[in-house]
Amino acid sequence: MFITDYIKDVFGAMKSLGTGLKRTLYYFTHHKEIITQQYPDNRATLVLPDRFKGEVVMPHDEKNEHRCTGCTACELACPNGTIKVVTKFDITPEGKKKKAIDKLVYHLELCTMCNLCIVACPSDAIKMAQTFEHSVFDRSQLTKVLNKPGSKIMEGVE
């Protein structure tokens, strides 16, 4: 009948609204459900997963040695032209000429963190660092040289 349908409508509507209200009231009163992370304040406790792709770095050991042979595989693998390998020729103690890197230039502003260079590197010389706060005031600071000054290639890396 019309009237009963009408009343049923009204009560059904009220019930559905009440269910929603109950749910939001639950969250209003249960503050332990809050999931906000207070980002700049929690820097100390912030853990990024070890695979997080933040920026490409070249690890050096305590003797200031890296593993890069200057093979340019990373440069070729990079889709964006982010890496430029500048090579030079070292003179080995035996007096032979040997190719080595002079500079490995890395343009952070071009990098899309696609991980392809890391995969391509045959000697595991570069890896992804777990950093993410990359903003700087001057664009030129985004162009980085990955090998430290005065560093040389590790013994036994070919």
């Binding site: 969250y27 209003f28 809050i34 906000t36």
Partner: peptide, 10 residues
């Protein structure tokens, strides 16, 4: 504040 708490924010 009401909005934030309902929306599980601070």
């Amino acid at each position: 504040k009401v909005a934030a708490w309902i929306q599980i924010r601070l």
